[in-house]
Design a protein around this nucleic acid. Structure first.
Length: 498
RNA sequence: GUCCCCAUCGUCUAGUGGUUAGGACACCGCCCUUUCACGGCGGCAACACGGGUUCGAUCCCCGUUGGGGAUGCCA
């Protein structure tokens, strides 16, 4: 589908944790760019850290991507012309390119151990100096010295010989011109002593070899970019365009972390957030459709409007309230059929089903029952997880009960008496062997209230809690219709006796 | 410490060298109403500070302050 001129972008997570919102946002912007330009979206796994990479993380990241609907054109389980897409399977490629660098004199062996470096740093700092990073000790080793170290079997890493003068700069898609003085750059390691390339080297090799045209990543990579540019230069490769997006902060403007609440994408899934809503909200963090345009958008609408030029350069704070709002808006805009599909797994999970003995007016199977339940629920359905509390009492006596509401509306003597009176009125005024419509319940309640000389609300509020266990619900007459006359009477009596 | 980035309502943001600085979330009030939610109406609330440039700066430049990032043989 992609032509030679279309962009190729990638998301390159390291499998050292779950897919968190920051990573998901980065992935999303890349994905949106690819989809909006007819380009290719590549998923590459950067698992060059043998210590921290795990299979679980790898699987979790893939799950997160799939849940959010970010399909990749090339990558794990999908293949592609530029594979393999796991860096741990590309070691030969990195070694080959390292050789090129070594031959050109751009890379050199460094025999300094971590302890050596630490000792030198301490020495300098003890003398009030500042350690600015690797000091270039092995830069000028003679062939004899190198031979001696190798003969002694000293482990070594490879470092890039970086330019000492001038500056390295690029025009960032988001941040515009960025420039760094070369003299401040140290010769960082590109190949570790364990035989694996460092991120700095692998990312450059892969982005080049995979034909990546645009690198969109978090701005925590800004200071890595000049070094990577130096690798491109040493390899005599053309560098891709870079775009650094600001990071996502917590509500307190501090770096987003677990203490702020959910940070992994899968946590939001378990909190009942719709993937489309999560995608929508993430897109709004650092990007905007502009002006007074509707913020609530489907994936397709976002793709249509997406533009790199509109990416914000200032960091955004994650707002859980707004996410909840976007989520409810998405649910609100769903058709009855779509809502039904979302709700089905919830009742299936607890084996909730219609019992024909309930004698529900106009309902003959579980699906049509659920459909009616969702119908009277209306816009109170705003989250997949809280939905269970809103509909449980229609299916089971073991439903959620709000203790506070019960204490306030059911426990008082007067309330109990009222419930008994109403239960009797329903028993005598209605045929319990026939399914009854909401209007019939309304009639009984209103006339009973009149006979008692009280407002209908006096009966309605305790009834609501007695039937639903909660002080908030859909219209009580409709609730009674769908709970059925028999169970309604039973619950009113049970509540009065509780 | 050094280097880099950022700065419009509490939050996400739109926006322009001259605007009543717009929208959304949250919050408050009113309406609707059997509760809640929805919906409708209204309200509160911002250009961080100090210098320039300019006839005029929220917008351009510099500085300060604040926040963030980097400074790893992590990615």
């Amino acid at each position: 589908m992609s032509n030679p001129n279309s962009p190729r972008v990638r998301f390159a997570p390291s499998p050292t944790g779950f897919l968190h919102v920051g990573g998901a946002r980065t992935a999303l912007f890349n994905w949106l760019y690819a989809r909006s330009q007819g380009g290719a979206f590549v998923l590459r796994i950067e698992d060059t850290d043998q210590e921290r990479s795990t299979e679980e993380s790898y699987a979790a990241i893939l799950r997160g991507m799939q849940w959010l609907g970010m399909d990749w054109d090339e990558g794990p389980h999908r293949g592609g012309d530029f594979g393999p897409y796991l860096q741990s399977e590309r070691l030969d490629i990195y070694r080959k390119h390292l050789e090129t660098l070594a031959e050109g004199g751009h890379a050199y062996k460094c025999f300094c151990s971590a302890d050596d470096l630490e000792a030198r740093q301490e020495e300098i700092e003890a003398d009030e100096g500042t350690w600015a990073g690797y000091d270039g000790q092995c830069r000028h080793l003679t062939t004899e010295e190198i031979a001696a170290q190798e003969a002694a079997g000293t482990p070594f890493a490879w470092r890039l010989r970086t330019p000492d003068e001038g500056s390295t700069f690029w025009y960032d898609i988001v941040l515009d011109k960025l420039e760094f003085q070369n003299e401040l750059m140290v010769d960082r390691v590109i190949f570790k002593a364990d035989g694996f390339p460092t991120y700095q080297f692998a990312v450059v090799v892969d982005d080049h070899d995979m034909g990546i045209t645009h690198v969109l990543r978090g701005d925590d990579h800004v200071s890595n970019t000049p070094f990577q540019l130096m690798i491109y230069n040493a390899m005599e490769w053309k560098a891709p365009k870079f775009g650094h997006m600001p990071m996502i902060l917590g509500p307190d403007k501090k770096r987003l972390s677990k203490r702020h609440g959910a940070t992994s994408v899968e946590e939001f899934q378990t909190q009942g957030i719709l993937p489309a809503a999560m995608t929508n909200y993430l897109a709004l963090l650092g990007w905007s459709p502009g002006g007074n345009a509707d913020e609530v958008m489907t994936r397709d609408a976002i793709i249509k409007k997406f533009s790199l030029k509109k990416i914000n350069s200032s960091p955004a704070a994650f707002d859980y309230d707004k996410l909840a709002h976007i989520n409810s808006e998405h649910i609100k805009r769903l058709s009855a059929e779509e809502r039904l599909e979302l709700a089905k797994p919830i009742i299936a999970r607890d084996n909730w089903a219609l019992d024909t003995d309930w004698l529900i007016h106009g309902v003959d199977d579980t699906e049509s029952y659920l459909n009616r339940v969702l119908g009277i629920l209306g816009n109170r359905f705003s989250n997949l997880v809280t939905l269970a509390n809103h509909i449980g009492f229609f299916f089971t006596e073991e439903h959620f009960v709000d203790a506070e509401a019960w204490k306030e509306h059911v426990t008082p003597e007067a309330a109990r008496a009222t419930l008994v009176t109403l239960a009797k009125a329903i028993e005598t005024g209605m045929d319990l062997d026939v399914a009854q419509p909401a209007s019939a319940f309304e009639e009984v309640i209103r006339s009973t209230a009149e006979e008692m000389g009280v407002k209908a609300g006096e009966l309605i509020h305790p009834s609501r809690v007695a039937l639903t266990g909660q002080s908030r619900s859909a219209g009580i007459f409709e609730v009674m219709e769908l709970v059925g006359a028999r169970r309604t009477v039973a619950r009113l009596k049970n509540a009065a006796n509780s």
